[in-house]
Design a protein around this nucleic acid. Structure first.
Lengths: 228, 228
DNA sequence: CGTGTTATTGACTTCATTCAAATTAGGTGG
DNA sequence: CCACCTAATTTGAATGAAGTCAATAACACG
């Protein structure tokens, strides 16, 4: 079931990873590494909607999606989290999202509940959290404009530019998520995402290599024109 | 052009209000009243998208909408702010929204930029701001689910429940905003909002009195079932 | 009472969805 | 290394929900 392969560089754990595999914390770039590093496999749950929020998280390698579900299963992915991104901060008692790894991923788990650290001292750590919150908020606010007011092609164009900006090697984007994930992020169906991508390819704005998880941005200016 | 009337109780300023009318700060319920109270008329701009963010704001009376525009004029209202709500907090240099009064409104203007106060002491004031940010974030995240995944009726039902919870006298909701505003908040057109409301009325779930700005919730259970 | 604005209603169109099928990629095991 | 198998993606055709355009109705205000 666990299909490991490539993509995540910092992946050390064996492919047949047991849930909750814990490694000794390796001091990363940040000063504040109070947390332990854990590895997750494809689609493995990091936390569930409604779980007690005792920790928050930071992506070391790989990628994570956070999402909400409607009673009948409709899903909205609020964000994709790439290396360096913090997610899972809550002020309430429980997580209002679920979080799953998109592929193999390693995550730093911070034990301290954000609410505690808000009042407590440690201003460096604290302001890092506040900054992360603010970034989430800005992202969410832009995304509302996308979800509420953009057409399918505009949504896809925006998405490509966004993801490219965050995770690109000059034009060549390696997507860590499936088409379904993209659809659930953009408020579309898989079919519409696929058709939009095909449409962009036909117009020579992007290229879709055989390896479906990668996309080449041929004409960013055109994308920017399309994005709204 | 300035059509004042009723609605806002704490309204003291004359109807022919000049922009930026400033009153001496009246210590409100909160301890932290560092700001001056200002009054705004219907559709008056409090700040614009891109304006330097030197202040943030709190609604005393009336209501405010914050919105983003697409180049071609499509608008997404990210939130309606009712008395007690804080809005306009930014960490960057400029506002990423515009804010306008929905009708006559009085607003407390806090001079301190949020970013300053984040690092600075004053933990009570500070945590109030962080809490406001967090509430915005939660709101935005729920709204993404609505925008991305709910049908028109579900959106309208959710909206009614939400606004009722925040600003109701037992079932009778006095809407401070127009149908266009509702539409731009829910990612719909006015016509669809209107049709959805009419539909709910026909099903006896709500009543639409002559005074179009008010709505009576007859059957909240039904609304809750509809909301998703 | 007229007038301008806001809301509702109707007819028609369209974009995105749904349902269904075909294709392709990538992993598995021989 | 190759044939097979499963899951992901793409494509096609038909439907449908919400949008657009246009007209009417209902207020709010002077």
């Amino acid at each position: 079931m666990l299909s490991a392969l490539a993509v995540s560089p910092a992946q050390i754990a064996p492919a047949i990873a047991l849930r909750g595999y814990v490694e000794p914390a390796r001091p990363a770039t940040d000063a504040q590494t109070l947390g332990a590093t854990r590895s997750f496999g494809k689609d493995e749950e990091i936390f569930g909607e409604g779980d007690r929020a005792t920790c928050f998280y930071k992506v070391l390698s790989g990628a994570v999606r956070t999402s909400k579900l409607l009673s009948d299963g409709r899903r909205q992915i609020d964000a994709f989290h790439l290396p360096g991104d913090i997610f899972g901060i809550e002020t309430g008692a429980s997580h209002r999202f679920s979080a799953e790894a998109l592929g193999d991923a390693s995550i730093i788990v911070y034990r301290r509940c954000s609410l505690d650290s808000l009042s407590a001292g440690d201003s460096a750590f604290h302001s890092q959290i506040v900054a992360a919150m603010m970034r989430s908020l800005e992202r969410a606010q832009n995304h509302m404009l996308l979800l509420g007011r953009k057409s399918a092609v505009e949504k896809v164009a925006s998405f490509l530019l966004d993801i490219a900006e965050r995770a690109t090697d000059h034009g060549h984007v390696e997507l860590p998520m499936s088409r379904v994930d993209i659809a659930d992020h953009l408020g579309l169906t898989v079919e519409t995402v696929s058709r939009s991508l095909t449409g962009l390819e036909r117009r020579n704005i992007i290229a879709l290599p055989a390896h479906r998880r990668s996309i080449v941005l041929r004409d960013r200016a055109a994308l920017r024109r399309l994005e709204a």
